Amino acid sequence: MTTTTHGGPDALGVPRWDFSTNANASGPCPSALAAVQRADARPYPDPSYTALRESLAAFHAVDAARIVLAGSASEFIGRFTAWVARNGGKQVWLPVLAYGDYAQAAQAWQFERVRDPARAHLAWLCEPSSPLGEVEPFARSVVASGAQVVLDRAYEPLRLSGRCGLEAAALRQVWQLWTPNKAMGLTGVRGAYAIAPERAVAQARALDQLAPSWPLGAHAVALLDAWVSPTAQDWLAQSLERLREWRASQRQLLTELDWTVLPGDANYFCAAPPRPLDAPALRAAGIKLRDTTSFGLPGHWRLGVLPPEAQAALGTALRRAEVFE
């Protein structure tokens, strides 16, 4: 059985204080949660998702034909990689530090990882990046490479500072992958979508044809519909103000405990403890962090920003010697 490294619940259940995921800790968004709870799961969704495509397209001011729906970001990553491979792709460019599903999908299709984006047929970008939450320094050269470029924007709605490293003209040249469940604080509802480049409508339809029937269930449709509503967007904007305050206090807490805290623009950041952590002991205390070794950053942990009560619990646990090896 393949083991996938991820944050969130584990064999012990849902952590009391879960710093290991990047969901909006102000959530769930009340209007999005209500929409999901009201969703009628008795009938099949419209297999073409006509109304949903149109609402997503209107939100992003693009043609509905450019919208590609996906069961999740991970499902899209696998499907997109398969599509590039089927069209002769053999080389992939990945950020030095990146979400493991990009490499996992590339490996499944026997792509060769290359350092020069000009040699790549497929390239993945993520801004704010994961695990660091920063701008991708090679983004512009990757866009200019001629590869099929996907910009993973999972954390763009949760950006707390800075701005995207790509201008509007560059964004129109890449595939943009969106997963609003994180911003809405409802990561258990799986659903995502991509916006195809301006002149890639035919490719978008080809990707649709590779998808299974009904990739989105009723609850995912409800979440994505709610995500683009003014009510949800107003709530999101207000939540970012709280997250900025919580991020500042959480970074200060770890700094005072002699952690090396790395910079970042999102609702999460990476930090290295003064000595190795005993993760099982910390988990037994109800606290879970995300080990960033699978991202390519050993010796560090990624921490989603949580409210003051969770931060107090983290501080108490870290002051106890038994959570260190």
Rank of each mutant, 00 (worst) to 15 (best):
A103V: 01
E136M: 09
V228I: 13
R283H: 14
D225A: 11
A85T: 02
I67D: 01
G89R: 03
L158S: 02
R38P: 01
D40I: 05
T255L: 14
V84W: 00
F295M: 07
F76K: 00
P274Y: 13
A108G: 11
P298V: 06
V221Q: 06
A57V: 04
A23Q: 10
A317L: 09
A57F: 00
T81N: 01
V261S: 09
F138E: 14
A284Q: 15
Q238S: 11
F111C: 10
R86L: 13
L224I: 07
A310L: 01
H300S: 11
G27I: 12
H219G: 00
Q104I: 07
A232G: 05
R283V: 11
L158R: 04
V68Y: 00
A123F: 09
A313Y: 08
L186S: 04
L207C: 09
D291L: 09
A41S: 13
A25N: 05
D278R: 12
Q209L: 14
G27S: 09
R115Y: 06
L177H: 13
G185N: 06
A139R: 02
G188H: 13
W175H: 02
F138Y: 06
S239E: 07
A154Y: 00
P117C: 05
L277A: 12
L318T: 11
D46C: 12
P43F: 08
T5W: 14
Y102V: 01
L277K: 08
P128S: 10
H121S: 10
N24Y: 05
R172H: 12
L306P: 01
P131W: 01
L318Y: 08
A222N: 09
E156N: 02
E256C: 11
A61G: 09
I287N: 02
T231F: 04
R244E: 12
L177W: 07
D278A: 14
V142D: 06
R320I: 02
V92L: 04
D10A: 13
A25I: 06
R79Q: 13
R42N: 10
A39S: 15
A313N: 06
P276C: 10
S31P: 02
A206H: 01
T187M: 10
A85Y: 02
C164A: 12
A70N: 02
V96W: 10
A11N: 10
T292P: 05
A310D: 14
A206T: 01
D234P: 00
R242G: 03
E256V: 09
V135G: 03
W246N: 00
E256N: 15
A144V: 04
P263W: 12
L52C: 07
A310Q: 11
A23W: 12
S74C: 05
P212I: 08
L223D: 01
L297V: 08
A147W: 10
L243T: 09
G78N: 14
G188I: 08
G162N: 07
N24P: 10
G315Q: 08
W235I: 07
Q311A: 04
A272N: 07
Q250A: 14
